[in-house]
Amino acid sequence: MVTIGIDVGAKNAKILILKDGEILISKYRESGFDQAGVTTALLDETLAELKLTRDDITSICSTGAGRKAVTFANEVVTEVSATSRATFEMYPEVRTVIDVGAEEGRAIRCGERGKVEDFAINEKCAAGSGAFTEAMARALELTVEELGKISLDSSASVPMNAQCAVFAESEVISLLHANTAKQDIAKAIHDAIASRIVSMTRRVGLNKPIALVGGMARNVGFVHSLNAAIEDEVLIPDSPEMTAAYGAALIAAERAA
């Protein structure tokens, strides 16, 4: 049985194709302003690459903020359900999942078999999501990847007072003018967002081991700060940004069975 999970996020649309429990392929591209067009193109190109047609597909499940734009999906689930389901598949012992994407941060408490028991969301404010690090990277004229890397070389701790991404940008620029080392500013940025994510996670319970998924899991500086804040090492899958798409494909398979 072949099933597909499509996760339409604020920044990228992701597709993952599953055959009898095995991942055949996964891909992503910018979701842009025409989410319906982008996801359709992404589906057709990915199928063509595998020499498959839509008739070979048993079920398609969409998830993510733009999940309603996927008109060809026959199942729809929230990203919380999808993320929780995929985490169970990868780490059956995990009960706390942190998911930080481009515009939202979430903490999920999962029960047995990946069932969602509770979740907290930080949304509609850039301070608690990838948008915060993106804005800070722009202010420092670095890519997000560079910002993450240099953060590991920090030797001094610098306080960051502003919570708001807009005010934090001005603070970062003042720090630069005061000749503060970029790596120390980078560390302060990641510590700040990690501390906000951890306090959100405390609302659902910080039960270790903890899994970290979503695009922000690629940021080594953030991961380092997060690990320090929880005094543990989070578990990160190979393709953390594909977690929700994977979960959607798994749910599609379960529901079709």
């Binding site: 404010c125 850039a126 804005a135 708001c164 991404a165």
Partner: peptide, 10 residues
């Protein structure tokens, strides 16, 4: 209609 996001970044 007003811009729907409160957050300046969004």
């Amino acid at each position: 209609p007003p811009v729907s996001s409160t957050c300046v970044v969004f």
